[in-house]
Design a protein around this nucleic acid. Structure first.
Lengths: 143, 143
DNA sequence: TATTAACCCTATAGATTTAGTAGATTCTTA
DNA sequence: TAAGAATCTACTAAATCTATAGGGTTAATA
């Protein structure tokens, strides 16, 4: 299951991506528009800022804004920050690899065999989508 | 993340699939061989039996055995029983659909747009794999 | 009839998720 | 320089999920 953190994070990024300009948007506006608990969203936006997707401005007229163009923001990176590993088991993870302590031989492990394929297929989707591609009214171009 | 239930369930199915015949195999044997908590495995095998993948025999010489040939056991079905929905959000689930109460328009939802692709790609993998395909020493045939 | 092994029910520690609360800090504007 | 607006930080808490343990019951076999 996708965590609400990821779901809200994606929605917030999309909301910012749909803005005409890059003027700061307040947390309260995003929260209201996307039906998100404001305080929860606050912590999500913070982690998106710390990982370099967003920047923020304090004080009056402040808020959050995208640091890059939507077509430069890859879902692979966003998902890894919000949801964590793309792989469903650590032993097939590219960025968060860990061997299973209960499994004597990865090469002969059924779970490994299957989850490797699942990881690759998910990765293909995330690599093929930028924030631009999932904005509303933006039909996905076939590459 | 893949739950241990699913991981153990897959391993148990694979263990049974690797047997030469279909004689009942005891829970204790599978648990020992695959490093699984016996009690936990018990409940997993029970749910696999109730969903029609396995059958069991009580008493001496009893145990669990596969009801079908490994090449007739599709990962799509196994995953749905063990892990639940294949989709990461209910609003893109084929078998467990639920609309999001916080989302006014699915067609214009970024999360929906992305997760639909992820579901399809995962589904493609699960549909293309039977238990036979993930057994050890069984190279996956290209279809 | 004794043994064996699946079956079934209950409880629980621990982790994770999803927030809510309170206050501090920083920036902008008047 | 004061006031207000907004982010930032830290602590807490409820709710759920996960993984496992315990113990008694039922059915099959020898």
């Amino acid at each position: 299951m996708l965590s609400k953190k990821t779901k809200y994070g994606l929605k917030a990024l999309a909301y910012l991506g749909n803005q005409k300009d890059r003027k700061p948007v307040q947390i309260s506006e995003i929260a209201a528009h996307e039906n998100i608990s404001q305080k929860f969203l606050e912590s999500i936006l913070l982690s998106l800022r710390k990982s370099g997707f967003l920047s923020s401005k304090k004080g009056k007229g402040g808020g959050y804004y995208l640091l890059k163009n939507p077509d430069q923001i890859y879902m692979t990176d966003v998902m890894r920050v919000l949801e964590g590993p793309i792989a469903m088991v650590p032993c097939v993870s590219l960025n968060f690899y860990e061997s299973c302590d209960d499994c004597p031989d990865e090469a002969r492990c059924s779970v490994h065999k299957l989850m490797l394929q699942v990881r690759d297929s998910a990765l293909a989707v995330y690599r093929n989508n930028t924030l631009q591609d999932i904005l509303c009214d933006t039909p996905k171009e076939v590459k």
